[in-house]
């Protein structure tokens, strides 16, 4: 596989805005002149289940799927989802993890336990990790809905796309009335790493 291909995996729970984040990332790569491929899952998996989006860019990209242990960046909007998809990340890759727990229904039913040692597991799993409070940051900026773009700002630090490509991509991807909020969310996230 070509070294010049960049692979990113974004994970979270249905409804957290993973798909918008992957769209912005793909646009930013396209604006930067790369070939881009993305993949996402629709349908039943979106109903409160785990959601995965994958983005790959480079001079020539074939597969839209990221192979295990090859992603330069793993961005997770929920912490155990970061662990669940940890093996996508290359050994020297950057993990960006939102310090948020969303309890799966299997736990609230009492059929499974939410691990108590998440932070230590994350630290052991990811030698290069940015552990941030994207939801709180987004709320302080005006809307918790922008947590996905705060996370994306942090993810951008693990990639080599120019700053103006990101801004143009955000402008093209979100509605006008949320534009300033999301641009701010992105810059704030970018400064957290």
């Amino acid at each position: 596989m070509s070294e010049s291909i960049r692979s990113v995996v974004l994970v979270g729970v249905g409804g957290q805005g993973i798909l918008l984040a992957s769209e912005v990332l793909a646009r930013a790569a396209m604006i930067s002149g790369y070939e881009v491929k993305t993949n996402e899952v629709h349908g039943m998996a979106q109903r409160g289940g785990s959601v995965v989006a994958q983005v790959r860019y480079g001079p020539r990209v074939y597969s839209p799927l990221v192979a295990r242990k090859t992603a330069q960046v793993l961005g997770a909007l929920e912490q155990i989802e970061a662990l669940r998809f940890a093996d996508y990340l290359a050994p020297d890759g950057l993990a960006v993890v939102n310090a948020q727990a969303i309890v799966p229904v299997t736990v609230s039913m009492g059929a499974a336990r939410y691990p108590q040692d998440v932070e230590s597991r994350l630290k052991a799993a990811f030698p290069r990790m940015a552990y941030l409070r994207a939801a709180e940051v987004a709320r302080s900026l005006g809307s918790i809905q922008a947590a996905n773009i705060v996370l994306l700002g942090a993810v951008s630090r693990g990639l080599d796309l120019p700053s103006d490509a990101w801004q143009e991509a955000i402008r093209a991807s979100v509605k006008e009335k949320f534009r300033d909020l999301n641009l701010k969310a992105f810059e704030t996230g970018r400064c957290l790493v």
């Binding site: 729970v13 249905g14 039943m44 998996a45 979106q46 109903r47 409160g48 289940g49 785990s50 295990r68 242990k69 155990i80 989802e81 662990l83 669940r84 940890a86 093996d87 799966p104 229904v105 299997t106 736990v107 059929a111 499974a112 336990r113 939410y114 691990p115 597991r121 994350l122 052991a124 799993a125």
Partner: peptide, 19 residues
């Protein structure tokens, strides 16, 4: 064969559910 990630052991499944 990939070794299963030790940190990903016993994670609670997150199946789709009624909203």
């Amino acid at each position: 064969m990939d070794e299963p990630m030790p940190y990903a052991r016993d994670l609670p499944p997150r199946p789709p559910v009624l909203c």
